[in-house]
Design a protein around this nucleic acid. Structure first.
Length: 426
RNA sequence: GGAGAAAUGGCCGAGUGGUCGAAGGCGCUCGCCUGCUAAGCGAGUAUGGGGGUUAAACUCCAUCGAGAGUUCGAAUCUCUCUUUCUCCGCCA
């Protein structure tokens, strides 16, 4: 959420930001409502002031056993007026709030301007895609042939877009989760958390999934609860509506959780394999920082996510999302895309964003500086470190052999109990 | 699921219709004092919004879990919700 005062004082910059995002926003209603709000508030405060002072007088009169009936009579009118105006004000404030809560973040100044994902900016490429001298297979085929993946039976259990791993496949997924968590905790200094997988409406609103994107979420029927689409949601909200001490910043959290997405509107996209699932595993990184350090922290968060791919020896590229491709809450986002041989292209495996104070204002996450008077909003950052299912897929494809076996990346071997290669279980 | 109790400032805790934004204590900050430390003394110590000021001072409005209501006036009374605790039942 943007600050109303900021919008009022920097209207052109805000409009420009929305244009760059290709978001069509009408600001006229907002300024009208804000004018009305100020007028009403002034009137109401005056009336409340009289009510407060006169009520004190009534109290004094009553104490000295004098008659206060005429004052009470007068106040009855004042009270009724206040009530009526209060209702008017509440309606206007709700309109303003509805507007603000649906307004996306402003792209940061150095974000490349562009209309959609075709205009994202390539930052760097790491590693070289391997040359195969045999007919390569997509990961779902490799997995099914090895008996470690069974998407057909998963669809019997739940439906399309659900995973079912077996044996060394299930173990590989778990190995990846443990490896990622261990690396972020012991090498990168994150605190491991294990948050709820279901959260309430306020929490979903804090990070920006609600109110605009409810159709992307799984909702628990009969409850105002939602399955998390990413652990960014519970982790970023840990300090919601709190004022935290500056000394705990930057605050770095990591978590493994399953993630649940309805994938509404993506029918026909990535229908095969593990790329797009209603349920997938993810290790997430979240940071709360001071405003002055958030971009520095974005770079290190990105580096932390990249480190996982480097250790797994998977080729990838980093791109900077253009203004038209930015997510709702993000001011700046880097995507990491891993090489997928069967598709002959790089596919998103991590998205690292700086949301500035956008989520912090929604969720009420503030901090106080040493000796500082006013609390300030923190900056929030998040990034996948990494999407586990897609990492699994990338390993299968990049490390496949002509006989259909898959080489386990060196770093994962201890996590696989010494297993170096996955062959079909006989 | 049934029965009951509770929710007040950073923390503990008083307050059941009127000078209560809230006693007292602890903690914290600043100052004083004392060989050091501890103790002692004094002052200060919530958040948001508006006015005011170079900045302050100052001032107004709101906030005692959340929302609605009663009343001239609500921390205090009523209703709904949320959370926590105790007992019973059930349960991984």
């Amino acid at each position: 959420m943007l600050d109303l005062k900021f919008i009022n004082t920097h209207l052109e910059a805000v409009k420009n930001g929305m244009d760059k995002r290709r978001a069509k926003i009408d600001f006229i209603l907002l300024s009208d409502n804000d004018e009305k709000r100020k007028e009403l508030l002034l009137k109401i405060e005056e009336l409340r002031h009289t009510r407060n002072t006169v009520s004190d007088e009534i109290a004094k009169l009553k104490k000295s056993r004098e008659n206060a009936d005429s004052l009470i009579d007068k106040m009855r009118n004042v009270s009724d007026t206040i009530k009526a105006l209060d209702k008017e004000l509440a309606a206007i404030e709700k309109a303003i709030q509805d507007f603000l809560i649906s307004l996306p973040n402003i792209p940061y100044e150095d974000v490349p301007v562009g209309k959609d994902e075709t205009e994202n900016h390539l930052e760097r490429i790491w590693g070289t895609p391997r040359k195969f001298d045999f007919e390569i297979k997509p990961h779902e085929e490799i997995g099914e042939n090895l008996g470690i993946l069974d998407l057909a039976r998963a669809s019997k259990l739940a439906g399309a877009r659900f995973p079912l791993y077996f044996g060394n496949g299930a173990r590989l997924e778990r190995a990846l989760i443990n490896f990622m968590l261990d690396t972020h905790v012991s090498q990168h200094g994150y605190t491991e958390t294990l948050p709820p997988f279901i959260v309430n409406r306020a929490t979903m609103t804090g990070t920006g999934q609600l109110p605009k994107f409810e159709e992307d979420l799984f909702k628990i029927e009969g409850w105002d609860y939602f399955l998390i689409p990413t652990s960014e949601v519970p982790m970023t909200n840990i300090y919601a509506n709190e004022i935290i001490d500056e000394s705990i910043l930057p605050c770095k959290f990591t978590a493994y959780t399953p993630c649940f997405r309805s994938e509404a509107g993506s029918y026909g996209k990535d229908t095969k394999g593990l790329i797009r699932q209603h349920q997938f595993n993810k290790v997430e990184l979240v940071k709360l920082t001071t405003p002055e350090s958030s971009f520095e922290e974005l770079e290190s968060l990105l580096a932390n996510a990249e480190k996982i791919l480097q250790l797994l020896e998977l080729p990838y590229q980093v791109i900077s999302l253009c203004t038209g491709d930015l997510g709702f809450s993000a001011a700046k986002t880097y995507d990491i895309e891993v090489w997928m041989p069967s598709q002959n292209k790089y596919r998103e495996i991590s998205s690292c964003s700086n949301c500035l104070d956008f989520q912090a204002r929604r969720a009420g996450i503030r901090f106080r500086r040493k000796g500082g008077k006013k609390p300030e909003y923190v900056h929030t950052l998040n990034g996948s470190g990494l999407a586990v299912g897609r990492t699994f897929a990338a390993i299968l494809e990049n490390n496949q052999n002509p006989d259909g076996s898959v080489v386990i990346p060196e770093i994962l071997i201890p996590y696989m109990g010494g297993l170096k290669i996955i062959r079909h279980d006989v």
